[in-house]
Write a protein that binds this DNA or RNA. Structure first.
Length: 871
DNA sequence: CTTGGATATATCC
DNA sequence: TGGATATAT
């Protein structure tokens, strides 16, 4: 089940994966801001234990960073720097900081991320790697068939290392359409011949990766409200490295060709794994500071100077190669909690030690119960870690023992036994209460999880077990590495055409956005400018982001900047400030690859028109003229845009005809953009029965689209399940602690040491015997139950019918069973259909799938072939 | 009186 | 395997 060693991909795949690292921006702060919306926009930090000097700061939002507030500051210092800062405390439960709020929020995010790939590796509470190679491959194919076009607005908020803005990068890539040979020669000199196919596709695939990253982040924002940054590269190390380069709420691509230049000035310690002692050793041993300088040594020399394994690894990293696989892992392998007892708080007595072990064990108990419900697994090992003061020295130890029951008492007792058994003199001589060695730190953690037997009598446990298994199987199957295939190509112009078509659309949208802003700006011009200012004045003092200070000037996204210029000048016009001069086309546009390509096309076409047979692709080139003209129109209309309202109306009409939602809020409507925008004129289309979306009449696309619906549905189901379960276990807990029914609005009173009868855990699935009062308190149904409070009826949250209380557990099981059954069925279908793409002898069900694969393999040509061609 | 507290993972011996 | 340690957030 839980694989022990890391997995690696083959050397031949070093450039053909596309890996995303998604990193939540000042996550704990965002969680607090979401929970307490009145604090949004203010400088805010999260502290724990605010008693001493205002508590220790563990997260700082960007408004507060601007004021110089950083981590490892005390709350008081922050107040001094920024008097209006909001300090949120980590909740204190059982006299210790309780971070479960953030763990839950992290899981909420991960649930969204999971929809985009099975290959999701949660790296911490707020970070995850996604291997999106499969999706990228699909889209490369879609580009080739013309069913997908890269859309400029999807690259909003993207950056590429080594480029001022994303437009420059796209421009560079596009230029290679015109003159493939120049770059190709460079490729051939710089890379091994075997890698050339992947190298040629690299930029395009990363760009597609960036589009997906945009969708991922938009989905996270739309569904959770949280913002994040992302890195897009060919491996984990690189994705992680660049994810922090543009924060917050931005994403960064690391183009293959930019790696050497980046590494030449990259401090060794910026690389994950080199940030600590080992990194220092490396620098000292090699006499270097920058990663690129590692390559002054051969791999052999590095192996000799360090050790074999490190030498190999370091050499590869310095070459930008990292073969570590994105290992699917959603749930952690171990669960633990700990607490420091510094200085006077040292634990010196047995009673005190038992107390704290009890508290830790109690928290463990809660978390393990929850984990059991979600994952149907039980820990088989526990570890107790402790630091003792022995003659003034801090001595740390950890001992483990097998675990059969993980209830609070067992954990606490076993922990104490382990400490006793591993302490030479446990109690002070002559005392039965005083510890010989004060304890400065205590930790309990459990691991070695095993799936619980499904001999549980409860229906729920049985289904949950199956569902969990399914999930694990589908996730832990070895991943077959996608092959970067050389695909035959279709006409270059067809693709450029669709790119332009999309660009034009975007452009219209931007104008609408602008127009709207003008209207608003007449009311609150100052605010608008202030906001823009806020957005563009990005502080460079981002330390949690590993910020690289290589580029001194704050960068702006191409489109953002372009839009801003338009807005600026228009605003100036509107409020009668003539100093700004006439509204001119921003240089970015004139210099953009669109414009240049357009220019080239015009000239090419002029020449091409003379000889008659050159218009063999008649449709394409005449369309090109049309598009060029339209582009011209738009470009010039930018200049005469003053009477915005009339053209605005016109644009709105056009927009309502065939356009997606305005670019400004496309993120709020993820679903539309999760589907590729399609050229309905190039591909035969059908309608999706579920959402009516236009889809290419192509089985792969249909399957993908259905998966999209399925994923949404599944996610919904899972969330419902979890909510239900949490509700039930909470009800259980309240029931067991009894007495007071907390008001639903009041903060949940920290359950003071819910003294449960030992052994309760083992029967977690015991049916809850809820009272109506409890149920009401937790759920607040719209209508009261049919009769008075003594009535044995409750409202079923699922079907909104009243059910006898005693029957409710069964009733809920019924719903659950139905849901899970549905889920299993769907998983079945999905697992089979995706598995079959690779397998040789598919069951009959996958026939259509197979056909489509064959069809597309014999398919048409594409401009993307540029990236794969050899001479 | 604590120079970051609480977690988690990986690796070396 | 277990225990200590390193790394990271």
């Amino acid at each position: 089940m839980s694989n022990s060693t890391r997995a690696y991909v083959g050397m031949q795949n070093k450039y053909d994966r596309v890996v995303l690292l998604v990193d939540m921006d000042c996550f704990f702060c965002q969680v607090e801001e979401k929970q307490q919306p009145q604090h949004r926009g203010k400088p805010l930090a999260v502290v724990q234990y605010n008693a001493w000097r205002g508590g220790g700061i563990i997260a700082v939002n960007y408004a507060a960073r601007d004021k110089g507030v950083t981590r490892h500051m005390r709350g008081d210092e922050a107040k001094a720097l920024c008097p209006d800062i909001v300090l949120c405390q980590v909740p204190n439960i059982r006299e210790k900081a309780d971070t479960s709020k953030y763990r839950d929020a992290g899981k909420e995010v991960a649930n969204v991320l999971q929809r985009f790939t099975q290959l999701l590796e949660r790296a911490s509470v707020d970070e995850a790697y996604l291997d999106i190679t499969e999706t990228v491959n699909q889209r490369v194919q879609q580009l080739e068939t013309g069913s997908l076009a890269l859309k400029p607005e999807e690259l909003v908020n993207s950056y590429a290392v080594g480029y001022e803005n994303i437009g420059d990068y796209v421009n560079k890539i596009t230029k290679r359409f015109a003159n493939p040979y120049v770059d190709d020669e460079r490729f051939m000199l710089a890379y091994d011949a075997n890698d050339l196919p992947a190298v040629r596709q690299s930029d395009l695939r990363l760009l597609i990766g960036a589009c997906i990253a945009g969708e991922v982040r938009a989905a996270v924002k739309a569904e959770t409200g949280y913002e994040c940054s992302a890195g897009i590269a060919h491996n984990k190390i690189l994705a992680k490295l660049v994810a922090g380069m543009n924060k917050p709420n931005k994403q960064t691509i690391l183009p293959l060709a930019e790696i050497p230049a980046l590494f030449d000035q990259l401090p060794v310690g910026k690389i994950k794994g080199l940030g600590g002692k080992f990194g220092e050793t490396v620098c000292e041993t090699l006499g270097i500071k920058f990663l690129g300088h590692v390559l002054k040594y051969t791999e052999k020399e590095l192996q000799r100077k360090l050790d074999e394994k490190s030498g190999t690894w370091l050499h590869q990293i310095a070459c930008g190669i990292d073969l570590e696989a994105v290992t699917p892992r959603f749930y952690s392998k171990s669960i633990g909690c700990c607490k420091k007892f510094p200085g006077r708080n040292n634990i010196t007595g047995l009673k005190s030690l038992q107390h704290w072990l009890g508290e830790l064990a109690s928290e463990m108990n809660d978390r393990l119960e929850k984990d059991f419900i979600e994952n149907n697994r039980k820990a088989k090992q526990m570890v107790v870690q402790f630091v003792q003061d022995i003659g003034g020295e801090e001595v740390s130890s950890s001992r483990s023992s097998p675990l059969n029951h993980c209830d609070q008492d067992t954990l606490a007792r076993q922990a104490l036994e382990l400490i006793k058994a591993n302490t030479k003199t446990f109690l002070r001589a002559g005392s039965d209460a005083a510890l010989n060695n004060a304890v400065k730190f205590l930790g309990i953690s459990v691991g070695k999880f095993e799936t619980a037997s499904n001999t549980q009598n409860s229906l729920q446990a049985m289904f949950a077990n199956q569902a969990a298994k399914k999930r694990r199987i589908s996730v832990e199957e070895p991943v077959e590495k996608p092959i970067v295939e050389q695909k035959p190509k279709q006409s270059e112009e067809a693709k450029m055409k669709s790119f332009f078509a999309n660009y034009l659309q975007t452009h219209k949208d931007e104008k609408i956005v602008k127009d709207n802003l003008i209207v608003e700006s007449s009311r609150r011009a100052d605010e608008t400018e202030a906001e823009i200012e806020l957005q563009t004045n990005k502080s460079e003092t981002d330390e949690d982001a590993n910020a690289l200070k290589l580029a001194p000037s704050p960068k702006k996204s191409f489109f953002e900047e372009y839009k801003r210029k338009l807005i600026d000048s228009s605003v100036a016009q509107e409020i009668g400030d003539d100093k700004a001069g006439p509204v001119a086309t921003p240089p970015e546009f004139k210099e953009s690859f669109f414009a240049k390509y357009l220019q080239e096309q015009k000239e090419v076409n002029k020449i091409a028109e003379l000889p008659n047979e050159s218009s063999t692709e008649g449709d394409d080139s005449s369309d090109m003229h049309g598009l060029a003209a339209e582009l011209d129109d738009i470009e010039s209309s930018c200049i005469v845009e003053q009477e915005a309202s009339t053209s605005k109306r016109k644009l709105e009409q056009e927009n309502s005809m065939d356009a997606p939602a305005p670019a400004s809020d496309y993120r709020s409507n993820y679903a539309e953009y999760a589907q590729p925008e399609l050229r309905t004129d190039l591909v035969k289309m059908v309608n999706c029965k579920e959402c009516g979306a236009q889809l290419p009449d192509d089985v792969t696309a249909l399957q993908t689209h259905r998966d999209h619906h399925f994923a949404q549905q599944l996610n919904q189901q899972l969330r419902e399940e979890q909510r239900e379960e949490r509700q039930r276990s909470r009800l259980n807990a309240t029931l067991n602690t009894t007495v007071s029914v907390p008001s639903p609005t009041a903060k949940p009173a920290p359950l003071k040491k819910a003294k449960k009868a030992a052994g309760t855990v083992a029967t977690t699935s015991a049916k809850p015997i809820n009272t109506i009062a409890k149920f009401l308190a937790a759920k607040q149904p719209l209508e009261p139950p049919p009769s008075c409070s003594s009535s044995p009826f409750k409202l079923c949250p699922d079907c909104k019918t009243y059910v006898k209380s005693v029957d409710m557990p069964e009733h809920l099981d019924f719903h659950m069973a139905r849901k899970l059954q549905r889920e299993l069925n769907q998983l079945e279908v999905r697992t089979i259909s995706t598995a079959n793409i690779k397998k040789t002898s598919p069951p009959p069900r996958a026939k259509r799938q197979l056909n489509s694969t064959l069809n597309s393999a014999t398919g048409n040509k594409s401009i993307t072939q540029f990236f794969t061609q050899s001479n």
